[in-house]
Write a protein that binds this DNA or RNA. Sequence first.
DNA 1: TCCTAACTTGGACTTTGTCCAAGTCAACAC
DNA 2: GTGTTGACTTGGACAAAGTCCAAGTTAGGA
Lengths: 137, 137
Amino acid sequence: MSDLLERLRGRGWRLTSQRRVVAEVLDGEHVHLTADEVHARATARLPEISRATVYNTLGELVALGEVLEVATDGRAKRYDPNAHRAHQHLICSGCGAIRDVHPHGDPLAALPAAERFGFTVTTAEVTYRGLCPDCGP
Amino acid sequence: MSDLLERLRGRGWRLTSQRRVVAEVLDGEHVHLTADEVHARATARLPEISRATVYNTLGELVALGEVLEVATDGRAKRYDPNAHRAHQHLICSGCGAIRDVHPHGDPLAALPAAERFGFTVTTAEVTYRGLCPDCGP
DNA sequence: TCCTAACTTGGACTTTGTCCAAGTCAACAC
DNA sequence: GTGTTGACTTGGACAAAGTCCAAGTTAGGA
C-alpha cells in the first residue's frame, strides 16, 4: 500500500495530509475497518480530521478500485484494502470477526446462462458464516 | 405462504391482525421488500399499523426461519419470504433489481478445510452483481 | 509568491432501526 | 358470553450510519 499514494497522485489526486492519513490507516492486508474506526485511528494521527473527509476519502478509494466496500450485515460498511487479490469473506456469527478466504474455483462459473436472466454478470461475492474457535461450535 | 399463519399459531404465536397483514404482504415467491416498503403496503390494508410492529414482526419471522434477511448493500435490509428453498441473489448494479438464482453445486464445498481457520462454517451466501437487460451492458 | 480549483470542516439533516412506558386485545378458563 | 391476563401494539424519543452544504483552507501549478 505504500505506493498507493504515488499511484493516486499519478491519477490527479491532490495529496493532502488527511488523505495520506486515511490511506495509512488502511494499510495492511487483513484489515476490515468501519468508517468510524478509520476515523478514530485517523484522529490519533491528525486530531482535526473530520468525519466527512473520512467518508469522502473512503468513497474515492472505493471508486478508484483501491479499496473494497464490504456490507456484511445491516450495520456499518467495512473497508477492505486488499482489493488487488480476489478473495471472499468468512464471518463469525458470534463475535463478528472477519477473515479473508480463498475458495476453490470461480464462483461466477457456477451460475449457468439460464439463471442469468439476460444480466451481464460481472462479480460474485461469497460470504461464509459460522462460529470461530473462540465462539465455540 | 398461506399456511404460514397456521404454522406459526401452532408454535404459540398470537395471531393479531397486524401480524396477519405483514405475512400477507410478504406472500409470494419473488419479493424482496425493505421494512419501509412492507410498512407502506401493510398500511394500505391496516392504516394504523406502526413501524415498530412491522420491525418486530419481521424480526420474529426471521428468527423463526420463515423469512430471510438479505443485506445487499449498506442500505436497508430486504426481507425474502422464499426461505424454504435454497437460493442466491443476482442484483442489478444499475437499478437495484433483485432476482433469486440457483447456481450449480454447493458453494460451501468450495471452501477447503485449510481456509476455514477452525471456524464451524454453516452457510455460504452468494451475491452476483451485474447489469440487467434494461440497464444495458 | 500568488492564484485558484480542489479539498476540508462542522453542523444540520436523512435514513434505518431500536427502545420503552402505556394502552389494547387474543386466547384461554369458566 | 364474560372476565382475566400476559402478550402484543403504539407513538414518540432516541441512536447509529451516512449525506449534504456553505464557508474556510490549501496543494500545486503559473
